[in-house]
Simulated scan of single mutants.
Amino acid sequence: MALSSLIALVVSLVGAVLSPVVSLVATVLLVALIAWGWPAASGIAELRGIKNVLAHSVIFALCGWAGCALVYLAPTGKLLTLLPAVVAVGVVVVFLAELVRGEGAAARLESTISGAVGVFTAVSASGWVGMALIHHRTETGASVWGAGAILALCIGIVGARMIAAGPEGGLRRGAMTLGVTPVAFLGVLGYAGTLVIDRVIAWLP
Rank of each mutant, 00 (worst) to 15 (best):
A2T: 10
A2H: 01
S4Y: 04
S5K: 03
I7S: 03
A8L: 13
L9F: 02
V10F: 06
S12Y: 03
L13E: 14
L13D: 11
L13I: 15
V14C: 01
G15N: 14
G15S: 08
G15V: 11
V17W: 01
S19P: 13
V21H: 01
V22D: 04
L24S: 09
V25A: 02
V25K: 01
T27L: 04
L30F: 06
A32G: 14
A32W: 00
W36Y: 10
A40Y: 02
A41R: 02
S42V: 05
I44E: 11
E46N: 13
E46P: 08
G49Y: 08
K51W: 01
S57H: 09
I59C: 09
F60P: 13
C63V: 00
C68V: 04
V71W: 06
L73Q: 07
P75V: 08
T76Y: 07
G77E: 03
G77M: 07
G77F: 07
K78D: 05
L79C: 03
T81Q: 11
L82R: 02
P84D: 07
V87I: 05
V87A: 03
V87W: 02
V89S: 02
V89G: 03
V91D: 08
E98W: 09
E98R: 14
E98D: 12
L99I: 06
R101E: 05
G102Y: 06
E103R: 03
A107D: 02
A107Q: 01
R108T: 15
L109G: 01
E110F: 15
T112Q: 10
I113P: 03
G115K: 07
V117L: 14
G118R: 09
G118Q: 06
V119E: 09
F120V: 07
A122V: 13
V123E: 08
S124I: 05
A125H: 06
S126P: 12
S126Q: 09
S126G: 05
W128A: 12
H136Y: 04
R137I: 06
R137N: 10
T138D: 14
T140A: 15
T140Y: 13
G141S: 14
S143F: 03
S143N: 12
W145D: 12
G148L: 06
A149G: 08
L151R: 04
L151A: 00
C154E: 13
A160T: 07
A160H: 01
M162S: 12
M162H: 12
M162V: 14
G166H: 06
P167E: 12
E168A: 14
E168I: 11
G169I: 03
R173K: 05
L178V: 00
V180C: 04
P182W: 10
F185G: 15
F185D: 07
L186M: 04
L186K: 02
L189V: 05
G190Q: 15
Y191F: 11
L195E: 15
V200N: 05
I201M: 11
I201W: 11
L204H: 13
